[in-house]
Design a binder for these strands. Structure first.
Length: 480
RNA sequence: GUCCCCAUCGUCUAGUCCGGAUCAGGACACCGCCCUUUCACGGCGGCGACACGGGUUCAAAUCCCGUUGGGGACGCCA
């Protein structure tokens, strides 16, 4: 049995998108599950838009996610080079061969000519295919155009009977009817190959056994099949996985907030959470478990359990995975990742050990680290601003707050346990309980009606800070 | 416009291939209750879907056809 070889082939014309990341993940999982190899190939044939910076960004993002590759531009391999810009000789040789065999021809049409032809066909309600003008050029006519110095691309001749069938691993048999595509460009006039030609050439040369890619490539496959055929190569198996859509049901793009892996990294999502969430977009294992480690995903991943229908990227569920990971793997493990999200005044106010405690408390329910700034408010050292509900809660409980000032002021052992005891004692003495007891205190100390356990907050804040906040609240309540 | 793909709760999905075991199961979100003299966490419960129409069949979410809806492709982008 042939060794499984799959590839992820991003083009460095943008950042790694969650859609691309999911494609990479499925390839990676499939390779690992099958004991095969995962290859990274950079499709940088669009010189205008590709950049080395974007390429290394993609590599960084993949590494951060934990999707290491066995062969790739940075680490080599037996089938290199792994950057298409470095494989141009191969594509040229292939194209020359196809021209020599009469399966492709030089095309001299200009962009303007192409555009107007397309417009004409569109007006006639015909598919906007190339009309084959240059295919019918005689040798003389070709020579004349060359002499004129016209730019020259290479077009593939689509055979007259061009119905092709694809046995897609996810979708079963897909029939592309004859006439679906016109002669298409395989080599651009700048001497670089187009996507379909380069991808097919490389997948064959790199002995890729399974092409797992987004559904947007499904209709391209007919061209690639014809290229394999013309070149006498055996095509790989194909699996077109469903697209990831935005909330508006269209293909996920920049318009949908922050769909880049790097953005989620910056916003403080654990890589494990992104992986786990992405794995369950379009795939599910038997059983009800959803929290799965990378190792478990590898063990359970099977292509035949990938759904054919597109799914919508739901950040709310990603948040859930994220909070589950922070909670279950332990806050301390993520402390170094989380610390950069702490406001400076908090970092200045507490020693590292205290910061770790604060993070543990917040981690009880923290969708992403970028939410720390908001959730950490009760622990900020300054005097909180009282507004709205908090102000009302304080105003209606002046007696309680004054009494708390005395009681807390007398507190010798400033711990959550003894603080809790004092609050209860205060409640009993003044005959208030529940929200009537806690809310005014909470509001005075933190400026909010929500937050972590009040005794813990007070313990960490420290005696001085807490008393100052209550005094200030009391003073503020006098002047409405 | 043409071609291709897709169609189960608001969202992710199980069940579909091999029709009966399902008044369709789980998760997120939402709501309620319990726990907690506060806030969460947690536990329990609730709300909530087979797009529509025809067939085939004793029986259809499951098979077939059509309609509608959504998406993708139709580039010298990938």
């Amino acid at each position: 049995m042939k060794e499984v070889r799959v590839r992820f082939a991003p083009s460095p014309t943008g950042h790694l998108h969650v859609g691309g990341a999911r494609t990479a993940l499925f390839n990676w999982l499939f390779a690992r599950h099958e004991g095969g190899r995962f290859i990274l190939r950079i499709e940088d044939t669009d010189v205008e838009r590709s950049s080395g910076e974007l390429e290394s960004g993609i590599l960084d993002d993949l590494m951060w996610l934990g999707l290491a590759w066995d062969e790739g531009p940075d680490r080599g391999g037996a089938f290199g080079p792994y950057r298409q810009s470095e494989r141009v000789a191969l594509y040229r040789a292939g194209a020359e061969r196809l021209v020599a065999e009469g399966r492709a021809y030089p095309c001299f049409c200009t962009d303007e000519e192409l555009e107007s032809k397309k417009e004409e066909r569109r007006r006639a309600n015909l598919p906007p295919q190339y009309d084959g003008t240059c295919r019918r050029l005689s040798g003389d006519e070709r020579a004349r155009r060359r002499a004129e110095g016209r730019a020259e691309s290479v077009r593939f001749i689509v055979p007259p009977d061009s119905e092709r069938r694809l046995d897609d691993l996810l979708r079963g048999e897909v029939v592309f009817p004859s006439g679906m595509v016109g002669d298409f460009v395989i080599m651009r006039s700048n001497g670089l190959p187009t996507y379909n030609f380069a991808a097919a050439t490389d997948d064959a040369a790199m002995e890729i056994t399974h092409v797992i890619r987004g559904e947007e490539h499904l209709s391209n496959t007919v061209r690639q099949i014809m290229i394999y055929e013309a070149l006498g190569l055996e095509p790989p198996r194909f699996a077109h996985i469903p697209l990831i859509l935005g909330l508006d049901r269209s293909k996920l793009s920049k318009r949908h907030g922050a769909p880049n892996v790097g953005d989620f990294h910056a916003r403080g999502y654990p890589a494990e959470a992104i992986i786990n969430y992405l794995a369950f977009l379009g795939w599910s294992p038997p059983g009800d478990r959803e929290m799965l480690s990378l190792g478990e995903l590898v063990e359970k991943f099977r292509l035949d359990r990938v759904s054919p229908s597109p799914s919508i990227f739901d950040e709310v569920k990603l948040n859930w995975f994220s909070s589950q990971y922070v909670k279950s793997l332990g806050a301390r493990r993520y402390l170094d990742d989380a610390l950069p999200h702490f406001p400076q005044d908090v970092k200045d106010a507490y020693p590292r050990e205290r910061l770790a405690e604060i993070f543990e408390i917040l981690a009880e329910n923290l969708p992403s680290f970028s939410r720390i700034e908001e959730e950490i408010a009760p622990f900020r050292p300054g005097i909180p601003a009282l507004a709205g509900d908090a102000r009302e809660a304080v105003a209606g409980a002046r007696e309680l707050l004054s009494a708390s000032l005395v009681s807390l002021g007398e507190c010798e052992e400033w711990s959550a346990a003894s603080l809790g005891g004092r609050i209860k004692e205060l409640g009993t003495r003044l005959g208030v309980k529940g929200k009537a007891l806690y809310m005014p205190l909470r509001a005075a100390v933190t400026g909010s009606l929500h937050g972590p356990d009040l005794s813990r907050v007070m313990e960490i804040r420290g005696k001085e800070s807490v008393l100052r906040a209550i005094r200030s609240a009391l003073a503020g309540a006098e002047t409405p």
